[in-house]
Simulated scan of single mutants.
Amino acid sequence: MVLGVLAAGGAAAVVRFLVSRALPVGPGRLPFGVLIVNVAGSLIGGVVLGLAERAAVSDDVRLILLTGVCGGLTTFSTWSVETVELALTGRWRAGILNLTATLFLGFLVCGAGYVLSR
């Protein structure tokens, strides 16, 4: 189990790295790479919760996907730091947009994934 979580988390972290490299933050721009991986992780989380509720995935698979994949893919700390950096550099609108877009889209796709997978 530990190796499964480790492998899934490591692979997801590499995906996060590649997405962040492909979509770098530019002056005055939103950190889209972090937004994308956080929203994708929320969708995966919602789907896994829905599947687990109806016993379509085992507890072990649930743990590997939520702890490993979502833990390695999503970047709450990076998102927090980048949002603060936007505010500190005077890009308040981008910071507020990053905050609200990530929260709104994250909750939206997590809920949708849960409902669709139930």
Rank of each mutant, 00 (worst) to 15 (best):
C70K: 03
L49T: 06
L23I: 02
G113T: 05
T75F: 00
G41E: 06
G113S: 05
F32Y: 13
A7F: 14
M1D: 13
G68P: 03
T67I: 15
T67P: 05
S77P: 08
I64M: 13
G111E: 12
V37Y: 03
I36R: 00
A8N: 07
V69Q: 01
A112S: 12
G106R: 03
V39E: 08
S20T: 12
R29C: 09
V34Q: 00
V61H: 05
V34S: 09
V84F: 12
L43I: 07
R21A: 13
V37I: 15
G26D: 08
R29L: 11
L97I: 14
L88V: 13
S20V: 11
D59E: 15
A40Y: 02
R54S: 12
E82Q: 14
D59W: 10
T74H: 01
A94Q: 14
G113P: 01
G33I: 04
T100I: 13
G28H: 09
C70Q: 02
L30R: 04
A22D: 07
S20A: 15
V34C: 00
G41N: 04
N98W: 05
Y114M: 11
V115K: 07
V34K: 00
G28K: 09
D60R: 14
F32L: 15
V15Q: 01
N98Q: 13
A55G: 11
L116V: 12
A8S: 11
T83Q: 02
T74I: 08
